[in-house]
Amino acid sequence: MPDETQTITLTIDGQEIHVPPGTTILEAAEQNGITIPHVCYHEALTPPAVCRVCVVEVEGARVLQAACVAECAPDMVVHTHSERVETSRRTILEMLSSAVTLDEAPELQQLLEEYQADTSRFSGGKRREFELLDDNPFYVRDYSQCIMCWRCVEICADDGQYAFALNFGGRGFQSHIATFRDYPLPDTTCVFCGQCVNVCPTGALKPKIEWGLEQGLGPEEIRQLTRRGKKRKKGNGRE
């Protein structure tokens, strides 16, 4: 038991909870069996707090708070499933599904169902569509499935590999993951550690073998695909 003076007492969904200082609302909730949905959050990475699916209502706060980063404070009263919270979550999920292909993102599929999201509400608008990028022997990139959770960028940089091969292009709705001037990965500082593929929650980053199998290719064809040293011509792909 932590020192009493060092313990914070707060209420989450009517339940009195005690946690040490520095605990986030998300951690406090999970330790006490309360589920708060989250999308961009990953235990091993700095929370970018961009998806806002984890928002909760904190009494007295002007706007909703992202549970993955908001720290518990003494006497805080938190509602994790109020109507206001659910409206924001559902609307975010509906808008996301209208912009990006989520077919290969099981966690998101489950959330869409749980929140009874109407995936047709915002349909008909512009979608984020990209050509599949097949530029190296190890993995393919299909950014039409990318939800911009930042995980790959973070793990490629100072949360993991220190390779700094990935960053962002565009802004607003046009934001996307990009290499320097959209160069093919072999022409960047990518070391093909594969960590980005491991943390990607969607089908946006995929090992080449898995992709080859999906395409119905045989072992020899896949071996060809993944042969080392296959470099593409340099180009920045935007012209």
């Binding site: 998806c51 806002r52 209208s98 912009a99 607003g172 709705f173």
Partner: peptide
Amino acid sequence: GKCYPCQLGTQR
């Protein structure tokens, strides 16, 4: 474009 509500919401 950092957070979803605004990145997606301003477009829609």
